[in-house]
Write a protein that binds this DNA or RNA. Structure first.
Lengths: 224, 224, 224, 224
DNA sequence: TATGAATGAGGCTTCATTCAT
DNA sequence: AATGAATGAAGCCTCATTCAT
């Protein structure tokens, strides 16, 4: 009786779930990100998260303490993943102009491809950055987010290609604004002005417009 | 039956606005906008809204049906107010270049000065534009939002000042992105990168950067 | 449809419950006292209290905020009731000896007759007086509890009947100890030593013993 | 099988008491007594007890079955310890008067010095003595608690020093009441009437008052 | 003997909403 | 037009306990 049944053993061997805390937590976090992104912090239901999980509601509290703890970790995990991808971009070999173009394109594409991340950041801003402020991890992670851009601009200015007043922080602000807004406000924008910019063709146009806008803002000699 | 009785009139005179349905509704809407902007739709509490009101919770249901009805009306009212201000901008007398500069500045400044409106739009996007979609009023209101820009660009292109591929919709997208993001993401941006762009001086810089970026994106011959 | 049914109207007319907040609160408090007395603060179930009530669980939170708020009010109400009864005792016309005897008898009998009050005080002591400490009302109420004894002892000492070192506070302590313990520890005492002192005859004996003990402790010339 | 293996012995030597079942149980019981005394039976948390223990939660269930089993054993252990101390009191050589004084003083002091024991008994009374009733051990232990007093009173009555109606059970009741209440109700008493009787000086006074009260209640010729 | 992981049941509390006047 | 009282449904969270090793 006290011997575990073969069935249970098998299930474990197959799924790797039980007695695998990290997998359980990762599974919860993945689900939580989706549900928080869809409904916001107060709109999300712990019950819904739990039911989409391979484990039970109780485990959420076991590992994350409470709903806010789960939200915070989900947010951290989302930021961590973004940074991980950004670091894979290797722009150092390219000339400044091309590197900057690539960076804008990458940011635009990445935001476009990860609406859940965008939504989590929107939600976090609705909460005035309260949870991000409490997470040293996220702030540390992100401080580095500007390093690549900083080096590109440094090189571009050294070569006389970029304007002397091109400030990495402001350029990052510009790139982020265009890439972020494109996703965050898609719903209201397309409702009011139609879907023209939401189609594949439309997105291609605004992406190009964004690249040109950033380049022309930075280049010493803007392209006509 | 819509005429207040003499007794009601008297009470009205004493209290200032009891028995004045429109004033009661306006009061509720003003409070609701603030509370929804602060907490989101599910985060907002009908009780909190009611307590900040000069009237009672029952009146909210009396006039707006339910929480979502109140949210929708608050959203409509916010959009309506924006449009009212935009219409006061008279750019027709100006030459296209200056008119466009003014429009960018106005949008930037207006968004900066009305964070509650920005937050309502963020919230609405969190809800995938569900409530805006249900409101013919808002869509009609906003369709006109692009008319001024359309005329400016038309004139600029006619005069050979602006690029031929300058599309009012895309330019509006660009202006909105910069102006909106500047407010919507202030919390997370400043937490991660510091307050440099949030100060008065910083805001002045990004405002100028935004104007230049839009102009250089549109001008046939960008300014170096 | 919107007209209330005759049945509901009748019920209201009969019970006086609905739309009678004070009766509802009093009803809740009466039940709460019993359940808290039986199970303690953490042992009590809000659901149990609600089900024994003529109203719903929701009303408990409506009127008392939370479980602790209900406990606090129930405690206050219990103390208030005790004081109300004590004030009805009129000992001023009696000579000091007889007055003191009467006071001891009254206290002993009252505690005996109100085990729920005793249990609430036990429970409150288990909580280190935390809730009583937070209630100005209870402290104010009880400060007066010693006034009658103070006057009796004053008179007895003035007449040379009572010892000069008879301190009202200490005498009150003694009276309380005997009367309180008699009820509070009835369970363990009778389990260990049998029911002899719990029967009517046994209670009569200890009551007499208590009276004599207090008198002999106070009298200038103890009775043999 | 009760002999630890060599490997276990080694670990034992390192850790001090792992693999020493009795020490583990004693450790758990010591912690449990404190936590139950502080919070009551339902107020105590198994998790808190476990975390204050040198071992794990699982061991509590292993050794004591469930929370109530642990409580029962903690209660038993507390009673056992009290009896152990009482038996060390040797009053047989003293004359009855002095012996009785000593016994009152001892009881008063012991209760004063062991508030956790008092609190456990309070808690047990809140539970109507349910767990004590289930423990033959405790009842047997305590039956003897009155033996010493019985002999003292027997001797005092034989010598004509004590009243003929002095009943050991009633005198024990009196001694217990004063000594117990002094500790059990300290919180509420001092909150209502101030700390005067809680200070060292105040405790000295009530202790003396208790001794005198018991003596005067018992003595054939009370002291003025 | 020992333990970290896991959990079902049930507890407290909140919320938008409606009732009765 | 207005309101204080009332509520069902559902939310978040905790607890003693067991599992699997």
């Amino acid at each position: 009786m006290t011997k575990p049944s073969a069935g249970a053993q098998e299930r474990d061997r197959r799924t790797g779930w039980k007695q695998n805390p990290e997998a359980v937590q990762a599974n919860i976090l993945r689900v939580a990100r989706k549900v928080f992104a869809k409904n916001g912090l107060s709109g999300a239901r712990v019950d819904e998260i739990a039911s989409l999980t391979a484990t039970s509601k109780r485990m959420i509290y076991y590992y994350f303490g409470d709903k806010e703890g789960l939200y915070r970790k989900a947010l951290e995990e989302a930021y961590r993943e973004v940074r991980r991808k950004e670091e894979q971009l290797n722009l150092e070999g390219l000339d400044p102009k091309e590197a900057l173009e690539r960076l804008v394109e990458f940011t635009f594409d990445h935001h476009h491809a990860n609406p859940d991340f965008i939504r989590l950041v929107m939600i976090e801003n609705i909460h005035h950055g309260k949870y991000l402020a409490a997470s040293d991890l996220i702030r540390d992670l992100n401080r580095g987010a500007i390093t690549q851009l900083d080096q590109i601009i440094r090189r571009g200015r050294a070569q006389g290609l970029f304007r002397d007043d091109a400030d990495p922080l402001v350029v990052h602000w510009q790139i982020s604004a265009l890439s972020f807004f494109n996703v965050s406000n898609e719903a209201t924008f397309s409702l009011i002005f139609g879907e023209k910019l939401s189609t594949a063709a439309g997105q291609k146009r605004v992406r190009q417009w964004a690249v040109t806008a950033v380049m022309n803002a930075v280049l010493a000699e803007p392209i006509a």
